[in-house]
Design a protein around this nucleic acid. Sequence first.
DNA 1: CTGAAAGCGCTTACAG
DNA 2: CTGAAAGCGCTTACAG
Lengths: 333, 333
Amino acid sequence: MSVTVIDVAKEAGVSRTTVSNVFSGRAKFSEETRVAVLAAAKKLGYKPNLAARSLITNKSRLIGLILPSYLDTNTLTNSPFYNIIIDGIYAILREEPFYDLMLFTIPRRESLTKASEWIDIRNVDGILAIGEYEPSFLADLNSKDIPIVLIDNYAHNRYQNFAHILSDDETGAFTATQFLIERGYKHIALCSSAMYSPLMQKRALGYKRALDSVGYTEQIFSGGDMAYESGLQFADELIKQNMDAAFCSEDMLAIGLLHALLANGVKVGSEFGLIGFDNINFSKQVYPELTTIDQNIFAKGQTAAKTLLSILKGEEVNLHQVLPVELVIRNTT
Amino acid sequence: MSVTVIDVAKEAGVSRTTVSNVFSGRAKFSEETRVAVLAAAKKLGYKPNLAARSLITNKSRLIGLILPSYLDTNTLTNSPFYNIIIDGIYAILREEPFYDLMLFTIPRRESLTKASEWIDIRNVDGILAIGEYEPSFLADLNSKDIPIVLIDNYAHNRYQNFAHILSDDETGAFTATQFLIERGYKHIALCSSAMYSPLMQKRALGYKRALDSVGYTEQIFSGGDMAYESGLQFADELIKQNMDAAFCSEDMLAIGLLHALLANGVKVGSEFGLIGFDNINFSKQVYPELTTIDQNIFAKGQTAAKTLLSILKGEEVNLHQVLPVELVIRNTT
DNA sequence: CTGAAAGCGCTTACAG
DNA sequence: CTGAAAGCGCTTACAG
């Protein structure tokens, strides 16, 4: 029904091997042949069948992105971070012929088994994965013979053949906290959900280091699963404990806190200093606009995609990349 | 290298045809055979190769989702709507063995040609597409022999074999505007970007119908590409023209307007009534929380996915579905 | 530089 | 109920 390599060969008066060679550019052929094949292909509207190609080359040109969201199934809706990462990945993949991304969302831990099977069934060429995973899953990934690029995974750099893309989380948190100190705030809280995650601990570390350097006392508020809701809930306690500033480990939490503070009549930006982390788009779509640490999430997605592609092509790559962060001063500090 | 159907056949002591039959459940076989095959498959860790299956069945089990974003490449970042739709689609697909979704973002109109080729190359089984498209692209889709489900596409229901999923946009806008009237607001603006789109026109229609019913005059503010920024920019003009309420054709625009109004000292929720459309998550993550029209975007994604799957399975489906909307009263009205 | 042949892992008539 | 054979559309040694 559809046009195959045989049809093109017939039309061009060559063998199908030659047609294949012209498209792949692998073997040598005369200019004349090349032109004839290309003309025939164009005339017939030939398009390669990737499934057939995949079968023989054992390369699917499919990249899998693993997106954990253990709390609920609204993976993309609830993670602005994921959205930006994906946009960054597509920005790279769009320029790369024949590569496609497939998302695999992990709404429950059991889904990791499914993810593993899925990688085999679709014969995924490489994996991009965000966040932390249990050792057994990483061991499983490691046993598959495909490149793995981990984003924001601090816990498992023992797999030296995995690539790691991280941000300089500790420095970011340090910078943020130091900025609050410079602004004259004295009682600076750390607000965070999921303190147990290695990434959040890095950020906590930066906060502590900055406070230690001036001898201020730490005040840590932590708990809750959903960042925005956590932020909302921390406000009362912060006010009660006379905090005059907060460094939040993620923007959505800062935004929740901002709104609860506003509802309590607190003048955020003057009498209360608030700073987030991530610089998701939303952070400048609140009022007042949120001061935050920009981790350039888009570039992170791009870097991850580029790294995976490079490995796939057998190019030299830096397997362990730490991306810089930057303070973005807006109106809450 | 990997375990094939032949290995399983050998292990189970049957032919590969039988193995295939057991997995597909197509032909009849003895219970004994079934157990033997399944045991062998499990023992060897057999997983079907979807590319091979695809080649022979001419079914890829791949669903393509076309996501236009003509303004920039940050498709997901800038469209909360898309995110929720995708989550809805995955909620259905997760339960459907072997089906996968592939996103195709359209950052420029020229990309439509690429999308068309991509559908052929990956042998996509069915298409989900959001929004409006030029007739030539739809004609092209129509020429491919696969089911198409259009979401929020008002302009082209002339392709009767395409499925259409819409929301009751006009009623939603009518309800919203009427609610503002009931609340006692007299000078009710319509704020919208991209008024030329058929969907936005439907919403404009509902607004006009509500105003007409009480004899109020229309005041339309329109322009700008990015919803949030447009909202920001409308505030000055609204204030100058003594508006005391606004129905915004989408939440992000309402949120931009909200923040600009707040910055101007306008008391939104009492002296100014503001209502959005969509009920994206963000609309209840602002302060004050936004009154809006819930169009249940998640269910829309689910409905689209279900509809496509049903067509693919040859089941009876309602090709033209209009989903109900609902007023969600929060604190800006 | 070009072509005939084999084969990737599967399914699907078809014959028994 | 089961098996031998053909073939999906491609690429890759290999021989010429």
